[in-house]
């Protein structure tokens, strides 16, 4: 494992830890108002305070969980969908493939953000898990496309034919012969989906279509924006959350490079 991958895993591990313990180590209640209004970072408030004196450091700590939960739930759901559609299409070929490929391409081409904004704002209660489910529905298509191509190249391999010749049923061939050979592709698709989901969730919180009752990095930015933090020069209100997002995204992308290089020897050789 090279340095980049280890760095990525390290950052991811750090945020995972925060997601678990953030609520306990936060120095303040993130929603509690205080007397220090809109004060820059200090010993008492590491990341400064909001217009109503809330502690931004605590908001970031507590908000980590919502971000990570959505990433994980979407990653699992969307990866499952992409395997279901992509591998089936690639393995069966013919009309089933035409139909399923068309489906994934339609989902890819339609601009997801405005659609999700509409759906999210129509939902009576847009809480974390529901949003994760909606995001998953739009996030599976890219993975399905990649998996389909990989499966098609595996399908004609002799070991698949050999499994068929020894009498294996089709579903078993797909699940036990083809899928294990796709682990790297699936893993990198999973990581990609998590990035996509995290970005989308934060975006939705930022534009204000998601329930604001639970904290995540996006809701911090929403309050910063709606209180004109920019105009008042309160950079500390939006910088920490944004940096966290970028850091998490970078970590996941680095992990993905590691997987890609592991799976594609040509890229690996270049790194050596």
């Amino acid at each position: 494992m090279n340095f980049k991958t280890r760095l990525g895993l390290g950052i991811l591990g750090f945020f995972t830890l925060i997601a678990v313990v953030g609520e306990w180590i936060a120095p303040y209640d993130p929603s509690a108002m205080g007397d220090d209004l809109l004060s820059p970072p200090s010993g008492a408030h590491w990341f400064g305070t909001t217009m109503t004196g809330q502690d931004i450091f605590s908001q970031v700590l507590v908000g980590t969980r919502g971000v990570m939960v959505v990433g994980l739930v979407c990653g699992v759901l969307a990866t499952f969908l992409s395997i279901l559609v992509g591998v089936t299409a690639g393995f069966l070929g013919g009309a089933a493939d035409e139909a399923l490929s068309m489906l994934s391409n339609v989902f890819l081409v339609i601009p997801a953000l405005p659609l999700i904004i509409i759906v999210a704002s129509m939902l009576p209660s847009a809480d974390t898990v529901l949003i994760a489910a909606v995001i998953s529905l739009t996030a599976w298509a890219w993975g399905a496309r990649v998996l389909r191509a990989q499966t098609m190249s595996l399908r004609r391999r002799d070991f698949v034919e050999a499994a068929r010749a020894s009498g294996e049923r089709t579903w078993r061939i797909i699940v036990f012969e083809v899928l294990p050979n796709l682990t790297a592709v699936i893993a990198s698709g999973f990581v990609g989906t998590v990035i996509f989901a995290v970005m989308l969730q934060i975006t939705l919180s930022f534009v204000g279509v998601v329930s604001l009752s639970t904290w995540n990095w996006g809701t911090i930015l929403f309050w910063a924006q709606s209180n004109q933090a920019l105009g008042q020069g309160a950079w500390w209100w939006f910088v920490p959350a944004g940096l966290c997002i970028a850091l998490l995204g970078t970590a996941l992308a680095l992990i993905n490079f590691g997987i890609d290089e592991y799976a594609n020897p040509r890229l690996r050789k270049v790194r050596a």
């Binding site: 391999r157 070991f159 050999a162 020894s166």
Partner: peptide, 28 residues
Amino acid sequence: RRKVQMVFQDPFASLNPVHTIRYHLTRP
């Protein structure tokens, strides 16, 4: 298939790289 079995040309391609030899023999 129980009565007609096949051996492929390329032994490097006809065994699944992710499974042990035991798996290959236990399945049939």
